[in-house]
């Protein structure tokens, strides 16, 4: 493992499997009376959130607390950040407080990279979502969930066919998933209207399509991305109705998926927009399980970054 987790591309196959295997062991904790391990006792994890994301923050918070780390939640709202403090000054403050790890969510793509490589702080940096760039722990929990259902909870995802549908252009989840799933051997197809595919997507390790129906019959997993209604006003698509008809997962489409195939969504869902309520609540929907797996995977990441000896910058262990 590298010292930071900024991109899903930071993980080679062995690293990714180490995280997933570690998460699989840590997932057992959920069934125990005492859901806590002493491993990170005395270590400080700062959740530095410049963007509202209650679910990601509480997932990281639960993960850190279950490993006995001290958790400091630093929300940009109502803080000195909203008074104009720079990322650098915020970082120096956290460093002075002795942060061993900073979990950062930022609206600007690249902010975690800046934090990790500027020399402002000594601790590990975990990207909890930056702009439209990456969200590596989300891709890890997605891969973990897929592995459970499609690969017996072991090994990689060689040859599994994953269809990711929706607003790829603005989705850090899609980008991280494509990178990680490719590393794990899965075959990913991104399905979106042409307006919601980023320029340069042809260089990504995946296929793209405008036709959702063509990628249902052989899919092992279909992951729906959240589509914000505001995108409609920016003319990325004509209407919610048209979006939902062409790119929404409804019962008719779900029925075309193989029996073993699962439905995923990183949340929060727009029921009736990208996913029909009956699909979200169907037995093959693993959306709630994704949330639970998020805690296990984030525990694994924090343990692997912080649980061992402190490494020098850029050193791999």
């Amino acid at each position: 493992m590298k010292r930071h987790l900024l991109s899903a591309a930071d993980l080679d196959r062995d690293d990714a499997l180490l995280v997933l295997d570690t998460a699989a062991e840590l997932a057992q904790l959920t069934d125990r009376a005492v859901k806590k391990l002493p491993t990170l006792r005395g270590r400080t994890v700062v959740n530095l959130f410049f963007e509202d994301s209650t679910r990601t923050r509480i997932s990281f918070e639960a993960a850190a607390k279950r490993l006995s780390a001290d958790v400091i939640n630093f929300s940009a709202k109502g803080s000195s950040v909203s008074k104009g403090e720079s990322l650098k000054d915020t970082a120096l403050t956290l460093e002075a407080m002795g942060a061993d790890a900073v979990v950062i969510r930022h609206h600007a793509s690249g902010a975690p990279h800046r934090l990790a490589h500027s020399g402002w702080i000594q601790g590990s940096v975990v990207n909890a979502g930056d702009g439209t760039h990456e969200h590596p722990t989300q891709s890890l929990l997605d891969a973990f969930t897929m592995r459970r259902h499609l690969a017996g909870g072991k090994g990689d995802l060689e040859g599994r066919k994953i269809t990711i549908v929706g607003d790829v252009l603005h989705s850090r989840v899609a980008r991280s998933n494509v990178l990680l799933l490719a590393t794990l051997g899965a075959e990913v197809t991104l399905v979106a209207p042409p307006t919601l595919l980023p320029v340069g997507v042809e260089t990504w390790p995946c296929a793209t399509s405008y036709d959702f129906d063509a990628h249902l019959k052989d899919a092992d997993a279909v992951m729906m991305l959240r589509v914000q209604r505001e995108r409609m006003n920016a003319a990325f698509f004509p209407s919610a109705r048209e979006y939902s008809r062409r790119y929404g997962l409804d019962a008719r489409r779900m029925a075309q998926m193989p029996d073993h195939a699962i439905v995923m969504h990183p949340g929060p869902m727009n029921r009736g927009m990208e996913i029909a309520a009956e699909v979200a609540d169907a037995p093959r929907s693993v959306i709630v399980e994704q949330v639970a797996n998020g805690v296990s995977v984030r525990m694994a990441v924090l343990y692997l970054l912080l649980g061992g000896a402190t490494l020098g910058d850029g050193t791999e262990a």
């Binding site: 493992m1 180490l18 295997d21 570690t22 062991e25 840590l26 057992q28 391990l37 002493p38 491993t39 490993l67 343990y303 692997l304 970054l305 912080l306 649980g307 061992g308 000896a309 402190t310 490494l311 262990a317």
Partner: peptide, 21 residues
């Protein structure tokens, strides 16, 4: 019973892979 997460020498080596419990 894997005891890795309860070791007192975790910080003396890089993080170890967990063994099955």
């Amino acid at each position: 019973l894997d005891i890795t997460m309860y070791r007192d020498d975790l910080r003396r080596a890089p993080a170890r892979a967990l063994l099955p419990t």
